[in-house]
Design a protein around this nucleic acid. Structure first.
Lengths: 227, 227
DNA sequence: ACAAAAGTGTTTTCTCTACACCCATGA
DNA sequence: TCATGGGTGTAGAGAAAACACTTTTGT
């Protein structure tokens, strides 16, 4: 390989993952006590260095798989943080990704082994470096996307009731929705399929389960579904 | 400085700028014949390597200043392209930025010296590497932002008529807008200020000039175009 | 009987859109 | 006078919001 660019500086290049989950009616973030120096032991987002043969998206997938056991999860680039002094000791450029996972499906043992914990978004702990800014930008992206797609469904189990879906959206947007209007709006998108099964644990009457209708073509992207 | 991260690979880190201008009723892109190997002479976005003491935003500003003579222009991060094979010879990670400039205000001599040219968006030349993808993502971001802010105004002179503004938005969205409705919608945002001066060159009757009302807070975030 | 969620329907309000219409003026 | 853009007003379609009301069933 010819080195056309000799003379230009090279930099450490990492990814950080803002991992959202949803439990007990609120959004939660998966945080880790940092495993290496500097600031070892302090709470941080999960991250890792990009290896020579992978893109940053692939690196983020690898990191998430190693830490949660999950594959094929929703993952999207948020922004790149490149302030030369963002870490106190060495210059590291970091590409932030946001991931949405169903808390019940990840590998709990793996997560426990690493000392990770799910922190409520409304009550986060102190975080290293600029990780708080990363979380803010990731949440803003999530809110924007939820406005024109059902992206949040990644946070729920495969089948869910409309009450569960509404509570999730209320958590994402930090506000209430009218139950009737929410139902009509979501169903009008024609992206959900009603199952014959009912959830009988959350109401007297029982509520039908729904799931995403994957059979749909991609052409119904009129402010909905872009995965 | 302690090297906590020895053992991890380092990479070349660059910025590329998608520079939009607006002239003769259409969006144009500023492209350059590449000044160095590899693929020297081929058309490309303007880019440059990030230096040790600057962030990628600062690097993009510097590159734009060096090539257009402009400072304090609209500039925003689009995405980071990090495929290990995106350049054919060496691995370079690139953060793409989008910039909007008023074509009449930049330094024409500087641009001409470098052999740069304004290409209509509808008829671009062949470009190196993944620069076409970068342009596509930058345009998508521009359209999204134009939907909830008057971002496009950066492409016009300080004072402009509503006809000029409408033509600009028609260029950004590649579709027509009703003249009356566009006027009412834009003025309802309460972000423009009418000057006493009229433009008499583009219509018989003459049209008032407007300019951005900078006194406003950021509350002009109402929707301009409905998708 | 009551409470709580499920589910449906109605009314009101607001915005987008299409389009009619007058104004001013250069050619 | 005609064409062109400037500028205003209005009626209809459709969505969003507010909310009334009925159903179901565990307690």
């Amino acid at each position: 390989m010819v080195d056309y660019y000799s003379g230009h500086s090279k930099y450490l290049f990492a990814v950080d993952c803002v991992v959202f989950g949803y439990e007990e009616g609120e959004l939660k973030l998966l945080l880790y006590p940092r495993a290496f120096e500097p600031v070892k032991g302090k709470w941080s987002l999960m991250g890792g260095f990009v290896m020579p043969q992978e893109s940053c998206e692939q690196a983020a997938c690898r990191v998430l798989h190693q830490t949660t056991g999950l594959q094929n999860i929703f993952l999207e680039q948020v922004a790149t943080f490149s302030d030369p002094n963002r870490e106190e000791y060495t210059r590291v450029i970091s590409v932030v990704h946001v991931a949405l996972i169903d808390i019940r499906q990840h590998n709990h043992e793996l997560v426990r082994e690493m000392g990770a914990e799910w922190w409520p978004l409304s009550n986060l702990t102190e975080l290293i470096f600029d990780h708080k800014d990363m979380i803010r930008e990731a949440l803003e992206l999530l809110q924007r996307k939820a406005g024109y797609s059902l992206v949040g469904i990644e946070l729920l189990p495969d089948k869910f009731t409309l009450l569960q879906l509404r509570k999730l959206y209320e958590a994402i947007y930090q506000r209430k929705f009218d139950a009737g209007n929410f139902r009509k709006k979501v169903l009008s998108l024609d992206a959900l399929e009603r199952l014959e099964e009912k959830n009988l644990t959350e109401s007297r009457k029982g509520a039908f389960y729904y799931r995403i209708r994957y059979s749909q073509s991609d052409t119904e992207t009129e402010r909905i579904v872009k995965f």
